Computed example of a mutant assay.
Amino acid sequence: MTPAIDYLRAHKIPFTVHEYQLKHSSDNYGQDVADALGVPHSQLFKTLLIALNGNPKTLAACLVPVAGSLNLKLAAKALGAKRAELADVAQAEKSSGYVVGGISPFGQKKALPTVLDASAVLLTSLYASAGRRGLQIEVAPARLAEALGAVIDDISA
Score class of each variant (00 low, 15 high):
residue 44 L to K: 11
residue 49 L to K: 02
residue 54 G to H: 06
residue 7 Y to Q: 01
residue 117 D to A: 06
residue 148 L to I: 08
residue 58 T to L: 13
residue 136 Q to K: 09
residue 148 L to G: 14
residue 155 I to N: 11
residue 80 G to M: 02
residue 65 P to T: 08
residue 80 G to L: 04
residue 34 A to I: 07
residue 139 V to M: 13
residue 17 V to Q: 12
residue 63 L to N: 10
residue 91 Q to I: 12
residue 29 Y to T: 15
residue 81 A to T: 04
residue 118 A to P: 00
residue 65 P to D: 08
residue 128 A to I: 14
residue 13 I to K: 05
residue 143 R to I: 02
residue 55 N to L: 05
residue 138 E to A: 14
residue 89 V to C: 00
residue 19 E to N: 12
residue 31 Q to P: 09
residue 59 L to H: 01
residue 57 K to L: 13
residue 67 A to F: 05
residue 4 A to M: 03
residue 78 A to E: 04
residue 43 Q to N: 07
residue 151 V to E: 12
residue 91 Q to A: 12
residue 93 E to T: 09
residue 68 G to R: 13
residue 122 L to F: 05
residue 16 T to K: 14
residue 106 F to V: 03
residue 139 V to N: 02
residue 137 I to E: 07
residue 142 A to M: 08
residue 23 K to C: 06
residue 9 R to P: 02
residue 68 G to C: 11
residue 53 N to K: 08
residue 22 L to Y: 07
residue 81 A to Q: 11
residue 104 S to C: 06
residue 107 G to S: 09
residue 82 K to L: 11
residue 72 L to P: 10
residue 107 G to W: 04
residue 135 L to P: 01
residue 89 V to L: 11
residue 86 L to T: 01
residue 59 L to I: 00
residue 146 E to Q: 15
residue 74 L to Q: 15
residue 73 K to L: 04
residue 106 F to T: 06
residue 91 Q to K: 11
residue 107 G to M: 07
residue 14 P to E: 13
residue 39 V to E: 08
residue 60 A to D: 02
residue 67 A to E: 14
residue 126 L to M: 15
residue 124 T to M: 01
residue 156 S to Y: 07
residue 109 K to I: 01
residue 149 G to T: 00
residue 50 I to A: 05
residue 53 N to Y: 01
residue 46 K to Y: 07
residue 144 L to W: 12
residue 125 S to K: 14
residue 97 G to Y: 02
residue 89 V to E: 12
residue 108 Q to P: 02
residue 112 L to K: 08
residue 33 V to N: 11
residue 27 D to L: 06
residue 127 Y to S: 00
residue 60 A to V: 05
residue 55 N to W: 00
residue 8 L to R: 03
residue 125 S to H: 12
residue 109 K to H: 08
residue 23 K to A: 10
residue 27 D to P: 00
residue 103 I to E: 02
residue 34 A to K: 01
residue 141 P to D: 04
residue 9 R to S: 10
residue 136 Q to M: 14
residue 61 A to N: 01
residue 41 H to D: 14
residue 78 A to N: 09
residue 107 G to E: 09
residue 96 S to H: 05
residue 60 A to I: 01
residue 58 T to Y: 03
residue 139 V to L: 15
residue 79 L to R: 10
residue 65 P to S: 15
residue 2 T to Y: 10
residue 17 V to N: 01
residue 86 L to M: 12
residue 23 K to Y: 03
residue 132 R to F: 03
